[in-house]
Design a protein around this nucleic acid. Sequence first.
DNA 1: TAAATAGTGTCTATGAGACACTATCAG
DNA 2: CTGATAGTGTCTCATAGACACTATTTA
Lengths: 244, 244
Amino acid sequence: MAGNKRHINQLVEFERPLTTVDIAIFTVRDQALKVLLVQRPAGAEDPFPAQWALPGGFIDTAKDEDLEGCARRKLKEKTGVETPYLEQLGSWGNAQRDPRGWSATHVYFALIPSEAIVLKAGANSADSRWFPVMEERNGEKLAFDHAELLRAAVSRLRSKVEYTSLPVFLMPAEFTLAELQQTYEIILGRRLEKKSFRTRMASADLFDAVPRMKSGPNRPAQLYRLKRRRPLHIFPRPFGSAES
Amino acid sequence: MAGNKRHINQLVEFERPLTTVDIAIFTVRDQALKVLLVQRPAGAEDPFPAQWALPGGFIDTAKDEDLEGCARRKLKEKTGVETPYLEQLGSWGNAQRDPRGWSATHVYFALIPSEAIVLKAGANSADSRWFPVMEERNGEKLAFDHAELLRAAVSRLRSKVEYTSLPVFLMPAEFTLAELQQTYEIILGRRLEKKSFRTRMASADLFDAVPRMKSGPNRPAQLYRLKRRRPLHIFPRPFGSAES
DNA sequence: TAAATAGTGTCTATGAGACACTATCAG
DNA sequence: CTGATAGTGTCTCATAGACACTATTTA
């Protein structure tokens, strides 16, 4: 009755919000956590001209099967590679975030090993570049509410790094335990205890030792390779759980 | 140039997906975890007529400030109360989930103490009812992909209950530690050790003892009340972290 | 008294932190 | 040899689990 009618009407009555997908793509290079940003076109007819933003854009209902497919498509367009890790962060939507109208964005975050990446000029971006993730530094001037999205992404990343094996997705095919520990430390912004770190990793059984060592001006280090089809490992306790 | 032009065009070119907000509202009553479902109208002009679904619906860009506001509005409409806990679960969107077209839904989950609730007949729902959350039981026949959304919500709820104080939001104003432990156990579907449980709660400093006891045919139990403005507490270790 | 539930004491096991120690390379 | 980094041994501490014990009520 009234209920049914109204439901049908909604499709006509209610304005559909603008719908986008944005992605925070992280890598670790030059001893720093970096995020990929793209510069918006300079024309004044676009919102936030020439400002930096997270890569993303409108869903193409003709091409995109689902939200994650849309994220993967955009990610591939920007970085040229399939990402080893993609996770949904959440969604943000309100009347103000886009001057063109009520809009909602579905946000993903991805981790990509530094060497894998070949940046491509995006169709919609004059330029794309890796920016170091510093606390609230450049974040202030990002387009839309992307400073907030980026903050949420970094926060989620850091908190998951405390109790998971996430950083392995940032490593090259072969790496040493010291290099992996460094990656953890760069993301978390603090030093970790070597012994606890190695005990954790050993217990997770994530790697195979390759019969090769990484040489340097000192004792060589064992090289490891991620085991096949290993899902994200959850450690039984987070780092720092022994603090008072 | 091409980039700018295309960006503008997208607003015209690209079909906007249908956008909804759905909510998994949980409570614990009659010794079971229950979720609120609403029955869809029976008219054949609506998708999934007469089937049960999570409460939710289209965003009203005129009334809803943001996604969370939309969720709170719908929640209030159904339950008649403000929820003490609301969290975004994620978003689901693809071409198939709604026969009317490419659609995306932003999903929230809420916890409400059982006594607080006064169910209201929703404008769009012939009926609404509390269903026990049994593994995959009734889930099969929910409208849209709501069985999957519900599974994700229950999964998120259970996993957070392992290391947070979430269940306190399901308790009445005054409760005993044994009652709180029961609530944990009902959600998790397993028994917890009394001593560890109480040690955890004591260390979190979440409650004030009220100068009153809960009487019964046995030793009376201390009643507690949640302290003011206590955010969700995160315990340093999850339950079960000592398992091999 | 018994039955029942509230609440505590105390031992073990796990794994993090601290940190000193040994190992192995280039010069 | 020294310097540097890889990797281990071992002690302490916090907290979960197990489980027996005591405490306090009603009937």
